[in-house]
Simulated assay, not measured.
Amino acid sequence: MTGFRRQLAILCLACCPLVCGIDVRGDDAAAPAAVESLIDQLNDPAFETRDAAEEALVRKGADAVESLVDAARHRGPEVALRAVSILERIFQTDEEAAGDAAEVALESLRRADRAPIVDAATRALAGNHEIRERRAVAAIRKLGGRVEYGIDENATMMVQNLAGNQFQTAPVQEIKTIWLTRGWTGGEEGLRHLRRLTHVSSVNIYHIAGSGVSREAVEALAADLQGLQVVRRGNASLGIKHLPIGTNVCRVSEVVDGGAAEKAGVVAGDIIVQIDETTIEKFDDLVSELKNYEPGQEAVLKVIRNGQFRSIPVELGGWDNVSAVPAMRDPFGNPIPRK
Rank of each mutant, 00 (worst) to 15 (best):
L11W: 12
P17S: 13
C20Q: 12
I22N: 11
R25N: 15
D28S: 14
A29Q: 12
A30C: 11
A31L: 15
A31M: 05
P32C: 10
E36N: 14
D44S: 12
E48T: 09
R50N: 13
D51S: 10
A53W: 03
A53Y: 05
E54P: 04
L57T: 02
L57K: 03
L57S: 04
R59P: 04
R59V: 08
G61M: 06
S67D: 12
H74D: 14
S85T: 14
F91L: 14
E95K: 13
A97D: 12
D100G: 09
V104I: 13
S108W: 02
R110T: 11
R114Y: 00
A115P: 02
V118F: 03
D119S: 07
T122S: 12
G127D: 06
G127K: 08
E130P: 03
E133N: 08
A138K: 08
G144E: 07
G150P: 02
I151R: 11
D152L: 03
E153C: 06
E153L: 10
T156S: 08
V159K: 01
V159G: 00
V159R: 04
Q160R: 15
L162G: 07
F167Q: 10
A170Q: 06
I175Y: 07
I175L: 09
I175R: 07
K176Q: 08
T177P: 00
T181I: 04
T185Q: 11
G187T: 00
L191R: 04
R195D: 12
T198Y: 00
V200E: 06
I208N: 07
S211L: 02
G212N: 02
V213Q: 05
E219Y: 08
L221M: 09
Q226N: 13
R233M: 08
G234S: 05
L238P: 01
P244M: 07
G246N: 04
T247H: 05
N248Q: 11
V249F: 03
G259F: 01
G259T: 01
A260I: 03
G265W: 03
V266H: 07
V266I: 01
V273H: 00
D276Q: 08
I280C: 02
K282A: 06
F283K: 05
L290R: 05
Q297T: 02
Q297P: 00
E298D: 13
E298R: 09
V300Q: 04
V300W: 00
L301E: 01
K302R: 14
N306R: 13
G307C: 09
G307A: 08
F309N: 11
R310Q: 14
R310L: 13
D320T: 03
D320W: 06
N321G: 13
V322W: 05
A324H: 08
V325N: 10
F332M: 15
F332W: 09
G333T: 01
G333A: 10
R338Y: 09
